[in-house]
Design a protein around this nucleic acid. Sequence first.
DNA 1: ATGAAAGCGCTAACAA
DNA 2: TTGTTAGCGCTTTCAT
Lengths: 319, 319
Amino acid sequence: MSVSRVINNHPSVKASTRAKVMKAIAKTGYSPNDAARMLKGRTARTIGLVVPDLSDFFSSCFHAVQEVAIRHDYQTLVVATGRSAAVEDRQLESIQKHQIAGLLIVTSGSDGRRLKLLQESGIPVVALDRPAHGVQADAVLVENREGAEQGVRHLIEHGHKRIACVGFDSGSYTVRERIEGYKLAMRGAGLKPILSTDVSTLEAMQALVLRWAAAKDRPTAAFTVKRISSVLLIQALHHQKLRVPQDIAVVGFDDFELAEVLGTPLTVVRQSPTEIARSAAELLFKKINALREGRPAEMQRAKMLFPTDLIIRRSCGCL
Amino acid sequence: MSVSRVINNHPSVKASTRAKVMKAIAKTGYSPNDAARMLKGRTARTIGLVVPDLSDFFSSCFHAVQEVAIRHDYQTLVVATGRSAAVEDRQLESIQKHQIAGLLIVTSGSDGRRLKLLQESGIPVVALDRPAHGVQADAVLVENREGAEQGVRHLIEHGHKRIACVGFDSGSYTVRERIEGYKLAMRGAGLKPILSTDVSTLEAMQALVLRWAAAKDRPTAAFTVKRISSVLLIQALHHQKLRVPQDIAVVGFDDFELAEVLGTPLTVVRQSPTEIARSAAELLFKKINALREGRPAEMQRAKMLFPTDLIIRRSCGCL
DNA sequence: ATGAAAGCGCTAACAA
DNA sequence: TTGTTAGCGCTTTCAT
């Protein structure tokens, strides 16, 4: 019967009928069967969230997304790709079968064909933290470049001339942007960039620090492009008995819980996972709802950029 | 037609027919519609994972679970309760509608009625990290008590007599067990337990440490029952200029990435999230598959206990 | 504004 | 061993 109309708030229902139905629903505790709705082509009350992994940063993102989803009475289907483009592709395929209502993606670099398919089948897609390749999707990003620039400039203001940039994973968008920011700051001050952007293990980091220790023109400061690099560098400096900030000043990109507790509390460029994730989720639901209510007109592309904060602790040389 | 039989590998299919169907499936890229299957009462190829949050420990669990799930060609629907029993209850309700094939739960303390319902509707449930209340479910746990006991005993072997136990959240099963282990070790050595099991903020921790510093009979060692407590304690000791391990030796429960990098590398009782999560997931799939293949006889309850490792660094006084 | 009928893709039960 | 029939619970279309 036309309970359906009430549930989908179709206009043509007499108020009295609607009321009757509502009461019946309340009394019987009825709730529509999702499987049946999906069979008729509707989407499930589920959104997808694809992330490289659930490290600190992305797990904060997940929490924020889930919170928004719950508020809209949706479930969140999270999928971690292990930073593999191939896995991402496969996961997108299987997530598509779940008839999700929308997708948030922190891409691991798949080529975007699958994503395009998803979009073309009418599912709103919002890129989070990194723009997605090969598709015109909305994106909610962090000002990586500006943030890095600010961090490095802070070191420059401390009088440093030889500032190294240390990290790895420069294939990833965020890291690339941060390196770009570093270069901008250096060039802007007439300084020569010193890049070590392929240091991904403690051994490699220790070798690097050893080389620094031996050089006469060694860097007096370092900017690390991601959290792990900060940790590795601190570890390596510690092993090599180089003091922070006296021997080497450090500013890192991305904050973490223990940054304050380290031997020398770490000065960092902080980004807010919660903020970008919440914004992205809300943007996604705006589109989902626009779609449900049949006004795709309002769905123009959006690109949101969130600024970072420079959190000054002691590793930069400030007290 | 009876493509269905092939897909569900029903016995009565002639080999030649099966081959033909297989080929056709391969050629057309056919894949069964999950929604339709669900409509017929089957479960989705999805398992549920309910966790309090996705902090380090549980996100490792998630990764392990997802890996196993993918191998079985299942998706994982993760849900974080924010450590709230009420939210857990609500989430279980909505997860149930997704017709999951099985559930892994790190309970946040809901009363177990909903869980029982799930079980009675034929969905295998495996408790992870903590036994679930009010249901007879399989459980994969860590030897919290024994691990704590071992950690504390190590401090005792260093000659400490006044060893404090510091932490909070003693409402949770794991913490309770660890405190129990601490008490066992102390009593076993004829020592008096010194409990501060409600210290959840840095302020409270600093107040505690201040009290210690002022006391004549102050503890010479401390055992922290969870990661955050270890971090808080280290922070507070650091602020108070108490040296580790000279002034206070420390052993913590639960390892973390930066434990090695701390001013004094932290000695910890390590548990392996990956191991317990993988085992739990595999147990769950064993049951799911037993069910699918119609032999619920093999589904006797299992309880698995995983040991911990004492990772000796420097905060205990070794080296 | 409401009801009746058909069918989404699958599988359980039955018939051949 | 295979094909046929019916129906899971919903929404869409058409008729009232």
